[in-house]
Design a protein around this nucleic acid. Structure first.
Lengths: 350, 350
DNA sequence: TTGTACGCGTTATCAA
DNA sequence: TTGATAACGCGTACAA
């Protein structure tokens, strides 16, 4: 980048300011041992010469890069996108740069990405919605410099008892329970979950819904329509399967899927909330302006990213292990669910 | 990253394989001068020791990083997200890593981001939808290593005559013209543009619509509702303004805005395509499953990203200036517009 | 076919 | 308060 012969080096700045290399270096880093006068002068010439430090040399010597790595699933998806935006913004505030990599839910790609971060000698790493085993991740990246956001590995199913350190996640179970309660209060009885059969985060939500339903004393257990990761791409297929034996209401894995289901059902003449109630998860912007507007469990995605960055930076400063956090989610009731009397609509047998 | 005492260096690999540093280095880079036998052995021990090369040292010495920089507007927006995903995927295929930065439509932030790329000594840089003056960008990054995707600076207005090298963009004017023709063919006469008043890309689309309308011999000139960058966040406000004097059809700056307008109008009792026709731009996934599904001009966003990466890589290999490309867009007619007879609906005075 | 030795640009140690 | 100098880890011209 930039032709070598054109690039201004620290030594050029030093020569131009008539000081030694080390003085120039210190002056630019605001070292208090350098007189204010020299500092100003050096900084001025550095700006005049358009000096840009070579990060490679700096990190080689200083053993840190002020760079953070962020591993996420897919940049083209709004949810990880929001997390990434929050993370980058917060990191920038603290003077850190960010290197991104996408894992696309493939453990092998995720491992390669971590390797890239290590090559880049990132000071810290955040992993969002990783399908990688957290223990595996911690073997590759020292736990003191690792934050795991919204883990999506089966281990989160067993780990009911307390969050491990360095993990930031939303209280999905509570959110789904609230959504389930809302459905039941609104008179829905025959409720089904629509979501992935393999991903751990999906299992968490499904089990939370089942548990809530039972706890609420609803006699009909939760049903389940399997809709894998890209089911939202074929709204008709999934809608047709649902209509084979339609429940009163659907709890969908996420908003993307919920909106697709909404579309597929509409194409087949079934409308929410009149014929069926629909709830999503995530709170993406489009859920607020769909028709009908989608009832959803909103997660603070950008905030998750910000928190990941700040807790990473703090841990790096203090040499501590990053803290844990369980973030609340919020049920946002909109038009895709509504109060109704049970049994009016849908093929709900006695 | 990784405690120094734990990190495996090339010299550790060399020692363990009983060869010199340089032999180890060459063996790992598949240098044909090293016997196959030693190569294999060194590679084996490197893997066993989990050796990960230090990129800083390598790039310092080799004067290249195999890293590309991607500057975009906002990671949380689906459109740049798709470009980013395509870019990253293609870059990875060619063995390049990617550093991202978001400029948020702020020239100052964009300049800072370019600086970060130079610090990182990225081999090449792609700038997506930048509001920075391309000449400014080219002063900071050598043109031979710069690709500008979808520039959004006023200079694109004047530069009608031929694309400059290193620029990749979509043929927005043609797309908007096609959309306008579609509206006119469908019987819409009083047509308005909804979009930003300052951004160059918005001006291009508005002018293309106005020109197309005139060329089609429609007597009513294009009207214009100003809706700035985050107007989509307040659907009611913009819808209310439109309803003060509603046209037959709306050409919106992008899908996000179109969907918001759709929502706001619905809230006020006005429905597409019955009461008004609505067209978006971008072809985001949600436009395909909205209600009504959105007629839009679809841009090949992921492809744009892929092309940017591959043309950058190619230019780096050949030492050439990256090529130019004008990508076609496609009018996708869906439910938010439809054939109708003029004058039936809307406040179209004689 | 392999090894020796130097330098990439910066920061940190030590001495002045 | 400042300067000289030795690393940091790797790639490569040159020697063997």
């Amino acid at each position: 980048m930039v032709r070598p012969e054109a690039r201004v080096l620290l030594r050029d700045v030093a020569q131009a300011s008539d000081v030694s290399l080390s003085t120039a270096s210190r002056a630019l880093r605001h070292d208090p041992r350098i007189s204010l006068e020299t500092r100003r002068s050096v900084q001025r010439t550095a700006r005049d010469l358009r000096y840009i430090p070579n990060l490679a040399a700096r990190s080689l010597r200083a053993r840190r890069t002020r760079t953070l790595g962020l591993l996420l699933t897919d940049l083209s998806d709004p949810v990880p996108g929001q997390v990434a935006a929050g993370f980058e913004k917060e990191a920038t505030v603290h003077g850190y740069r960010v290197v991104f990599a996408s894992g696309l839910n493939d453990p092998e790609r995720e491992r390669r990405a971590l390797r890239v971060f290590i090559e880049h000698a990132t000071d810290g790493v955040a992993i969002v919605s990783s399908v990688l085993d957290p223990r595996d991740a911690r073997r590759r990246v020292p736990p003191s410099r690792l934050v795991i956001v919204q883990p999506d590995h089966p281990s989160i199913l067993r780990g009911k008892g307390g969050l491990p350190p360095g993990v930031i996640q939303t209280d999905d179970a509570a959110g789904v329970a609230a959504a389930t309660a809302h459905l039941v209060e609104s008179g829905y009885r025959d409720i089904a979950y629509v979501g992935d059969e393999t991903r751990a985060s999906s299992a968490v939500r499904r089990e939370a819904a089942a548990g809530a339903l039972e706890a609420l004393g609803v006699d009909r257990p939760l049903r389940w329509f399997v809709a894998n990761d890209d089911a939202w791409r074929s709204p008709l297929e999934i809608a047709a399967r649902i209509l084979l034996d339609p429940p009163d209401a659907l709890l969908c894995y996420d908003d993307k899927l919920a909106l697709a289901v909404l579309d597929g059902l509409r194409a087949l003449g079934v409308h929410a909330p009149g014929d069926i109630g629909i709830v999503g998860f995530d709170g993406i912007p489009f859920a607020a302006i769909s028709n009908p507007r989608l009832t959803t469990v909103a997660a603070p995605n950008a905030e998750l990213g910000r928190l990941a960055a700040s807790s990473l930076v703090e841990a790096l400063r203090g040499g501590e292990v990053p803290g844990r956090a369980l973030m609340p989610v919020e049920l946002v009731v909109r038009e895709s669910t509504r109060a109704r009397t049970p049994g009016v609509v849908g093929a709900a047998p006695a």
